[in-house]
Design a protein around this nucleic acid. Sequence first.
DNA 1: CGTCTGGTTGATACGACTCAAATTTGGTGG
DNA 2: CCACCAAATTTGAGTCGTATCAACCAGACG
Lengths: 241, 241
Amino acid sequence: MASKLEAFTRLSADEREALARVSRNFRYVDARRDLISEGDRPRCVHLMLEGWACRYKQLPDGKRQIVSLFVPGDFCDINGYVFKRMDHSIGAITRLKVAMISPEEMSALTAERPRITQALFWQELVSAAVQREWTLNLGQRSAYERIGHLLIELYLRLQAVGRAHDGRCDFPLTQNDIADATGLTPVHVNRTLQELRRDRLIELERKQLQLLDLPRITDVAMFNPNYLHLDHDGRHLDANA
Amino acid sequence: MASKLEAFTRLSADEREALARVSRNFRYVDARRDLISEGDRPRCVHLMLEGWACRYKQLPDGKRQIVSLFVPGDFCDINGYVFKRMDHSIGAITRLKVAMISPEEMSALTAERPRITQALFWQELVSAAVQREWTLNLGQRSAYERIGHLLIELYLRLQAVGRAHDGRCDFPLTQNDIADATGLTPVHVNRTLQELRRDRLIELERKQLQLLDLPRITDVAMFNPNYLHLDHDGRHLDANA
DNA sequence: CGTCTGGTTGATACGACTCAAATTTGGTGG
DNA sequence: CCACCAAATTTGAGTCGTATCAACCAGACG
């Protein structure tokens, strides 16, 4: 498992071993199944080992909003178990391999390992920054920009964990999922994707995304990578420095 | 200062005293001034003592999105100083009285005071939950519901710190601010507020908001207070229990 | 093969935006 | 206390982006 934590700071052999140990207790979840649902009592932290998931909220009238996406290496709800009840659901986009980490294991993992603690903390802060950027995305960008922005973000996040190269990456979201994440209708997502293709900015088929011109799409989607904090501000924690 | 922390757990005299001490180093900020701007290097935690502020992000084309609002008792960017650069700005809505707390003071405040640490942590988690709800708000609700939702949220948050009663509270946002927070145009906000007034759901003038029928507006805005976690899950930390 | 899910197309409707101007409010200085 | 100015709110007319509804199509799968 190429933990995302390595994107923040290089870990020592011991730290890596501890992470691997905690990941040994995993399970598989079918695509389109909930890992945990709104109203449930949270019991453990999930670490995504394989596949994509999403956090979503639903309205009484049936409308659904995907509020976050999780890709391999992401922890979800590190602190979730502090609340008595989930105020949202976590659903599998694809078939999933996830580690289940109990609060006790979590404490054991972080005790005496400040670099891991710090890296987890870091990831939480980045998640919050991403959530703010999504707010901006939904509030101020057009459909075209919004979808472009989403594609770039996911590409860069996958790249940070070694799962994207040369503008190419897996992209298992259906147009319906994209609609739920961007606050658009599936029909309009379809037409907008066609526009992006026509403009030679992307190719997207068979769950494979290719960004054809990263500088240009970055520009038209007004994508500013600041918020991902990928510039390794955490280097000073490098175990091998 | 009626600290918002008291909304989560009752504090002991010592804890309250420590908070008061740390609040002694405050400054005033004029309305419409930035407390800190995107790109700046964060240097301290801010605690809102008086007045309202917002967190916002701006796009190259000039569009602006308010991504969070801060009311008295809120800490902003408790962990902000972990990042090298701010990925957003904090602006004063009204004239502001804010405590400036250095990272060192922050450590001193929390060291040996687990209830304060816990309460701060709690507030961060609630902020994240609010951010997710805003994502839902922007993505799935109509203008009418969206504005209604915002009004209810702020009313309840103010109520939690003793600044709202009987459906009434201060509401210093201009229609322009509401527009920036809801992703609508000021003109449309104006018309939608008129609708809410016509439907006898709210009164809003001279920066005073009155919710005329909380059950009904809660229903039409599909407001579910879960996400604010106001149900005192943190009671077990009560210093006086 | 039929069925299902995901993707595509067309026609039409409507919610929210734009632009421009008028009006009201609140603050400031004479 | 009034005159003035800037900021905030309101109104009107016209447009546009996105939603809606309803088919239809393609590939995957049992």
